[in-house]
Amino acid sequence: MNTDGRLERANDNAAAFWLAQARAHGWRSRIRPGLTAVRCARTPDDPHRILLTRPYAETGSVERELTDLLAEWSTIRFTLEDPYGGLDLTRFGAARLPPMPVMVRDPGAVEGMTTALPAIREAHGGGTLTVDEAVDGDNVALVERAIVDGFPLPARRPWVRGDAFPERLLGEPGWRAWLGRVDGAVAGTCLTYDDGRATGVYWVATLPDWRGRGVAGAVLRTALVHAHPDRPATLVATSLGEPLYRKLGFVERARTCWWSRTSAQG
């Protein structure tokens, strides 16, 4: 059984990404062999995040660990990512969401890209599209608002600066944010996280007025060129984003099962 392949690198990166957020917010976390959990705690019913990172021999041990964790953290809502697809969490009051592809892009050139920022500067719908890295608090706030409104993140509405992505994340090694603008107006964004072995891509978002105009592709190409292009890039694709990711060289490695509980178990 392969326990350190491309899928496991993607799993480890996602776990590290959530642990970085836990440090920035001051959230509790738990790390066990094959399992990482973050007690997201903006409000008491914020969904806690649980990620399985390695194959498990049998489901009973995972379910026992989950039972203990939910009790210890007084969990109301949670999201659990199971890229191995063996769990049935209905007895925990969770619903299985449609599986999503875990995709990996091996290192290599990105077509049409140079190596100097601004990485993209092109005519775009009558304006000029630029993509830059967000390197200060004000620009991180613009990224945050674009994700809240464009991804979207309904639980974070109305947007409050620093609520989802506090400026302290700029101090987390490997955490980077990318911002696309058309004539200075924010159009799209994404986050990347490099853990030394892979670079994960997260929350690729385009604001409604700019969807279908190539903004997400421009932002993502910039991130791929500048966020450690010598390492594999990983992401979990939505159905809307998957065609773009395939076009940019991402290949499906597995389909991850997400389980979501949205209220206290009755």
Rank of each mutant, 00 (worst) to 15 (best):
P118V: 10
T192H: 03
S61N: 03
D46L: 08
G137P: 02
V219K: 10
W73L: 14
T189F: 01
G108C: 10
A155R: 14
A109N: 05
R42W: 13
P208Y: 14
K247R: 15
R181G: 07
S263N: 05
L244S: 06
L117K: 04
D106K: 02
W178T: 07
L70M: 06
T115W: 04
E133Q: 15
G188L: 11
P107W: 07
E58Q: 15
E8R: 12
P208Q: 14
Y193N: 08
S74Q: 13
V102N: 06
P158W: 06
F250P: 01
D194Y: 06
D132G: 07
L7W: 03
V102L: 11
D45Y: 01
L51K: 12
L170A: 04
L235M: 07
V236L: 14
H25A: 09
P208T: 14
A223C: 11
P243E: 09
V38A: 05
V215L: 09
E172A: 11
L51F: 13
L129G: 05
P173I: 10
P118Y: 04
A218S: 15
V38K: 03
G108K: 12
G214W: 10
D138Y: 01
L129S: 00
N2P: 15
W259K: 14
A187V: 02
G125M: 07
G171F: 01
P232V: 03
T256H: 01
A164T: 00
H226T: 10
M113P: 08
E144F: 03
P166A: 02
V225K: 10
G214T: 09
S29I: 06
A109D: 13
G86S: 06
A15E: 02
W159I: 13
P243L: 10
E111V: 14
L179P: 06
A95C: 08
A24S: 13
A198E: 04
V160H: 10
P47N: 07
Q21V: 00
V38T: 09
A205F: 06
L224I: 00
